[in-house]
Each structure stands twice: as structure tokens, then as C-alpha cells.
């Protein structure tokens, strides 16, 4: 691996994507599901409020979306930086 500078840019982008994903991960679970639930109390969903939905279902669905987004984005990034598996 002689193209060190390119690896550096690749890693920097990876860290940025991971950080954004983990912020969303924390917002939907600890945020909407627990700490921010009182703020969402006004939005009703099937006999309860949106915070309850996030705690029992919504956060899991967002986790799924995050992992698949990350896989798709990183596999694309690998190719862009020429570090994908041949």
C-alpha cells in the first residue's frame, strides 16, 4: 500500500460517516425513546405518544436503516479510494 495519503482521506471520511450515524443512533434511542420523550408527548400514535413508539419499535427500525446505509456508503467509498477488495 504505497498510496498512504489516499488511505488517510479514506479514514477521515469513514470517521465522519461513523460519527453522523452514531449521533442519529443516540438521538433516536436515548433521545426520542427516553430523554426527549416529554417533548414528543403531544404527537399521539395508536393510543400513546411518539416517544413510546421510538422506545419499542422506532429506534430498532432506525438502527436497521443506519447499518444498511453504512454498508452501502462504505462499500462505495472503498471503490472511490481504491481500497476495495478485488
Amino acid at each position: 500500500m504505497s498510496d498512504k495519503p489516499d488511505n488517510k482521506a479514506y479514514w477521515k471520511t469513514n470517521i465522519r460517516i461513523v460519527t453522523i450515524c452514531l449521533i442519529i443512533w443516540a438521538i433516536v434511542s436515548f433521545g426520542f425513546g427516553i430523554l426527549l420523550r416529554p417533548m414528543l408527548a403531544g404527537i399521539s400514535v395508536g393510543g400513546t405518544d411518539l416517544g413510546f413508539w421510538f422506545a419499542q419499535q422506532g429506534s430498532i427500525l432506525v438502527f436497521l436503516a443506519l447499518i444498511f446505509f453504512y454498508a452501502w456508503r462504505m462499500n462505495k467509498l472503498d471503490a472511490e479510494h481504491g481500497v476495495d477488495e478485488q
Binding site: 500500500m1 488511505n7 479514506y10 479514514w11 469513514n14 472503498d78 481504491g82 481500497v83 476495495d84 477488495e85 478485488q86
Partner: peptide
């Protein structure tokens, strides 16, 4: 550094 990039996994 090698763990961080996928190339060469095989």
C-alpha cells in the same frame, strides 16, 4: 493501518 482498509482481506 492495514486493518482500517479492506484491500487484501483475502
Amino acid at each position: 493501518e492495514s486493518v482500517r482498509v479492506p484491500r487484501g482481506a483475502a
